[in-house]
Nucleic acid binder design. Structure first.
Lengths: 132, 132
DNA sequence: CACCTTTTTAGAATCATTATAAAGTAGATC
DNA sequence: GATCTACTTTATAATGATTCTAAAAAGGTG
């Protein structure tokens, strides 16, 4: 029920596929990071059936637009998404290609002094790359 | 001469193509941001002749590895490189898809409190996304 | 010059992502 | 619940950046 309302309130029809993806993404204790490919695997394993890749892309992008997911800026050959949409940062382990959350309190306040005319700040993201 | 030495000192043979790319990347007052595609265009325009795309990729990656370039972490369909390898940060204008330098002094010190066992910090990069 | 290694190159291959357009479904209206 | 319309899903093709391949070219050393 909760996801039906969530989707309806965002102007997204609560289709079977979207509800299944919601279940996988949001029906867990902890937030997590994923790629489209990893999500596809998870759907196959947990739901049994398969959802078309195009639908997965569509849904993830729709959720991102609605603010239910965010994309994490890293140089990778594929896009990483985060179910934690609160203001926080990341470690990126270059060797394992894994992301680790960095709480805001682990970084401290960041005050951007420079201003750009006519533009406003949408987000401030810190990426800390790790090596061995 | 200076680029010949620079390349030799890094264990890279100073080939015609590498020297031409050095000229374009480092023979200018200001540092700048570029994509492979933009670099390719610039080579065609400034040098006249064409360097194979594969060579441009190879060279840029070699220079990155040697620390003469760095890649900027943003979510884009293509990789952005920076000729400024000093410790600094970026604005990313989401509308224009343009990068703007953010000096360290415009951000202030960032102290990462969290430690990850067995890993050390290679870089700390701040990306500030801008919207209208 | 002769030799060996590194580099360049065109073109093919790869792989994530996006577009297409046909079939299916949700939700409103009667 | 039948009907209609707009929104979704889907398989598949298309795109586009990047990487691979393997043959030709060039650098460097003796």
């Amino acid at each position: 029920m909760k996801y039906i309302d969530k989707l309806r309130n965002s102007g997204l029809r609560p289709t079977k596929q979207r509800l299944q993806i919601c279940k996988i993404l949001f029906d867990v204790e902890k937030t997590f990071h994923f790629t489209i490919n990893e999500l596809d695997q998870k759907i196959k394993k947990q739901i049994g059936n398969k959802i078309s890749l195009a639908t997965i892309y569509n849904t993830v992008h729709a959720f991102e637009k609605k603010g239910y997911l965010k994309q994490i800026p890293i140089n990778s050959n594929q896009a990483y998404f985060d179910t934690n949409v609160t203001d926080h940062h990341h470690f990126y382990d270059l060797k394992d290609e894994k992301l680790i959350d960095l709480e805001n309190s682990d970084v401290g306040p960041i005050n951007i002094l420079k201003k750009i005319n006519g533009k406003k700040i949408k987000s401030v993201e810190v990426l800390v790359k790790l090596e061995d």
